[in-house]
Computed example of a mutant assay.
Amino acid sequence: MHIKQQHSERHVLAVTVDNEAGILAKIAGLFTARGYNIDSLTVADINESHNVSRITIVTNGPPEVIDQIEAQLERLVPVHKVVDLTTAGPHVEREIALVKVRGTGDARVEALRIADVFRASVVDTTTESFVFELTGSTSKIDNFIALMRELGLVEVGRSGVVGMMRGPEGA
């Protein structure tokens, strides 16, 4: 018996919803029910009256499963719009990270040099450590963290991905 393997792809979904109790649990439940993980999830209100939010979800799955999830998200009552930024066209993705690094002497100098190359800002410092702030693509942040791990990485906090379509139209 030959089992067909499904090709898994990374997708960034932008979901506009009413700020309503339980909506985040319902959305997460759609992924859980299919056995797919949410790699990143960010939520923020997007209008002046604070009654509409944008949820950005990064996940991996076969296109057919992502299509099913999109269709089921669109059927949830408090959902206004679902856009798969990955397939909709050119878009921008960014993430922010705070990265704490221990360092004195040469390691301290090297951490500052690498931070400069990555355009990371020092947002806190002591005589024995730094906290860097870094904004960019997920891969940029992953690379920065890998380099800092060799120099004395202490702690990492990441925001998760936010994304937006390029051009004048909204997503």
Rank of each mutant, 00 (worst) to 15 (best):
L41G: 07
V65Y: 02
E169S: 06
G103R: 06
R119Y: 04
V17H: 09
R94I: 02
T125M: 14
A88G: 07
G29D: 04
P90Y: 02
I141Q: 02
L98K: 05
T16V: 14
A14Q: 00
V156D: 13
E93T: 08
G167R: 04
T16H: 08
F31T: 13
R54H: 01
G61P: 07
T135I: 12
A44G: 14
G35H: 13
R113N: 04
S53W: 01
R34H: 09
V117Q: 03
E70I: 15
H2N: 10
E155T: 03
G89D: 10
A33Q: 15
G35C: 11
R102T: 13
A115L: 03
R119D: 03
L153Q: 13
F130N: 12
S137V: 02
N143Q: 11
L151K: 01
E150C: 01
S159L: 05
A120W: 01
D124A: 10
V17I: 14
I69K: 10
D124V: 08
K81M: 07
S159K: 09
G163K: 00
V101H: 01
V161K: 02
E48A: 05
E128W: 02
L134A: 06
M164K: 06
V131L: 07
L76H: 07
V82I: 02
V101Y: 06
K81R: 14
L112V: 05
V161C: 07
K140N: 10
G29M: 03
